[in-house]
Design a protein around this nucleic acid. Sequence first.
DNA 1: GAAGATTGAGGAATCAATCTTT
DNA 2: AAAGATTGATTCCTCAATCTTC
Lengths: 168, 168
Amino acid sequence: MATTIPWLDDREQVTWLSWLRLSAELPAALHRQLQSDADLSLPDYDVLVQLAAAPQRRLRTTALARAVHWERSRLSHHVKRMESRGLVERVACDDDGRGNFVELTRAGAAALAGAAPGHVAAVRHYFLDALDADEQETLAALTGKVLARLDGITGSGATDAPCGRDPG
Amino acid sequence: MATTIPWLDDREQVTWLSWLRLSAELPAALHRQLQSDADLSLPDYDVLVQLAAAPQRRLRTTALARAVHWERSRLSHHVKRMESRGLVERVACDDDGRGNFVELTRAGAAALAGAAPGHVAAVRHYFLDALDADEQETLAALTGKVLARLDGITGSGATDAPCGRDPG
DNA sequence: GAAGATTGAGGAATCAATCTTT
DNA sequence: AAAGATTGATTCCTCAATCTTC
């Protein structure tokens, strides 16, 4: 085999490895904070945020799946577990016999309210505070660039729906 | 409660959400490529790379755990699954009756050799190719800055061991 | 048949508890 | 007791198959 395989050079390797490590460690740190302070997982938090921001504090299953960028199957399993803990409730949909709403319960709203300040503080502490305003903008621009290309390739295009973990 | 909670502002939110999305989508894309082209998971690949780079194509369990930045428990479970697929083998350690080596098998080496070119190409395609050389350096600097702070806080300090996914 | 959603099986990750050798 | 490593339980995620309503 005389073919030369184009391995990563030093610059590429540093970029890639440092990305890889951060994308493993940062969620882990945030997860531990949320879990120990509020007994919620990161995915739990995402779901609660979306429901809290929704019109009637409820969303159709598919709409919620889109909002958190999950497959319906994953959402279904997750909602089931959250329902058993009393954080959300599944209610039938009058208009469409096939569909459900996932609705935030009082306990779910309370859990989110209790968790949010600490989580936002953790996002700052572990992530944003390491960078000044310019650096944050630069980072956002670079990740945005990669995302745009990635979404173009994989077809998981940017959605309209509001997303993310921050309660409005 | 008259206390104002410092929510994320626009710049922070864009930075955070765009980070969040990329750190979900990029590994997913790479995982799918590796899985369908080489029948390996991303974690499988990491383990194989570390073993292939090690002196006798084998490493003590704890050393391997450090190299891939995992807990020993996670590694133990993972190695068990990989062993059942014939990719690695656990062999007793003469010097220390408590310890084991995890050793790369022929099949494991072959799997890595088969997977590496496609994986490296995917890393370029989905990630590196979206940025020019300067941008890559900038991104590495920014993620490095966050990582340095994060490791300082959480105590999971930077290790000496070589790490990463690229076979030497 | 297509859309909305759930299910079951299997791999993967984390935590606390355990076992053995030093 | 400390170090090296594994185990079991639980949660989480993906895939393929299913079920119901439109």
